[in-house]
Amino acid sequence: MDVVVDLGMCQGYGNCVAAAPDFFDLDDSGQVLLLKGTAKTEAEQAAVRDAIPVCPMSAIRLGE
Rank of each mutant, 00 (worst) to 15 (best):
Y13T: 08
M57D: 15
D25F: 01
V3D: 03
R49Y: 04
V54S: 04
Y13C: 11
G63W: 00
V3L: 01
V54R: 01
F24A: 09
R61F: 03
V4W: 07
E64R: 13
E64G: 10
P21R: 10
C55N: 03
A47P: 02
Y13R: 07
V54I: 14
N15H: 10
C10R: 11
L26V: 11
G12F: 01
E42T: 09
E42W: 01
P56D: 15
F24I: 08
L35R: 10
I60R: 08
T41F: 01
V48N: 00
A46W: 07
E44Q: 12
V54H: 04
D25V: 05
M1N: 07
D2E: 14
Q11E: 14
I60D: 03
A51K: 07
A43N: 15
R49S: 12
V54W: 05
A46I: 04
V32C: 14
L33A: 10
V54F: 05
A46P: 02
L33F: 01
P21Q: 07
Q11P: 00
G30V: 09
V32E: 06
D50G: 07
P53N: 12
V5I: 13
C10S: 13
G63R: 08
G63F: 02
P56S: 13
A20H: 05
M9A: 15
D22W: 01
A59G: 06
F24W: 08
Q11D: 08
T38A: 09
V32A: 15
I52D: 12
L34G: 00
K36W: 07
K36H: 09
Q11R: 14
A59M: 02
V54Y: 04
T41K: 03
V3A: 06
M57H: 12
N15R: 12
Y13Q: 11
A46M: 04
E64P: 10
Q45F: 01
G37H: 08
L34Q: 02
A47Y: 03
K36E: 12
M1D: 08
Y13D: 14
A46D: 15
E64W: 04
R49Q: 14
G30L: 03
G12P: 07
L33I: 15
A47C: 07
F24G: 06
L62Q: 00
E64Q: 12
A18C: 06
K40V: 05
A20I: 09
S58C: 10
